[in-house]
């Protein structure tokens, strides 16, 4: 790299600078309320995230009636635990079993079930995951450390519509008698996208 010898007096990245410029413009034109923006950011940084989904999964592992409702009508069963709203209006829950493993992607953009998982990780929104999850799901999962037997059927769900998908991972062996709260600690974000499994108990 040559020809870029002047000093910038800012440590912000080009993307951060662009976002700041857009925010200033939108605020000056009266199109966004900066206080509303702060609450939006605070909500998804600190209040809404994958611990919500983990509670849904742990409830399904411990309550067969709840699991039945969850698989039949994801939106209303998830709403029973108070998780509703934007990007979770129409939820579908996919059950992993010893013979079926589900993986969720949005090849067209970055659709993701916000009320149960929060905002998507960077890799979920990136072109490599989006393009490869549908053509080489086993290769993608292997890069996450998840290698499935050939006789397990992989089902990839491309979120091309307004349905939002949550994977119900298998309950790990050796967790009999664990409380719902302790079980929720085993449920990772990736296990609810399908790029991982629930953790083994320590």
């Amino acid at each position: 790299m040559t020809g870029h010898d002047h000093q910038h007096d800012s440590s912000l990245s080009p993307t951060e600078l662009r976002v700041k410029a857009l925010e200033s413009l939108l605020t000056e034109k009266g199109l966004v309320d900066p206080a509303a923006l702060d609450i939006l950011i605070e909500t998804y940084e600190n209040k809404v995230g994958p611990r919500n989904g983990a509670r849904v999964v742990a409830r399904a592992w411990t309550d067969p009636d709840y699991k039945k409702r969850l698989l039949e009508d994801g939106s209303s069963a998830i709403a029973e635990l108070g998780y509703t709203g934007r990007q979770g209006e129409d939820m579908v829950v996919l059950e992993n079993t010893p013979s079926v493993h589900n993986l969720v992607v949005c090849t067209l953009c970055s659709c993701y079930p916000w009320p149960v998982l929060g905002l998507p990780p960077v890799w979920y929104k990136a072109a490599p995951y989006r393009s490869r999850a549908v053509i080489d799901p086993r290769g993608v999962m292997a890069e996450f450390g998840l290698v499935l037997d050939d006789d397990v059927e992989v089902r990839v769900w491309d979120s091309t519509a307004e349905l939002r998908y949550l994977v119900l991972p298998e309950r790990p062996a050796g967790t009999d008698g664990m409380s719902e709260e302790a079980l929720a600690e085993l449920v990772t974000r990736d296990s609810m996208i399908g790029t991982g499994l629930a953790l083994q108990p320590k």
Binding site: P137, D150, V154, R155, V156, W157, D158, A161
Partner: peptide, 9 residues
Amino acid sequence: SPRDKIYID
């Protein structure tokens, strides 16, 4: 894979 499926809305 002969087993794998893709579901698209």
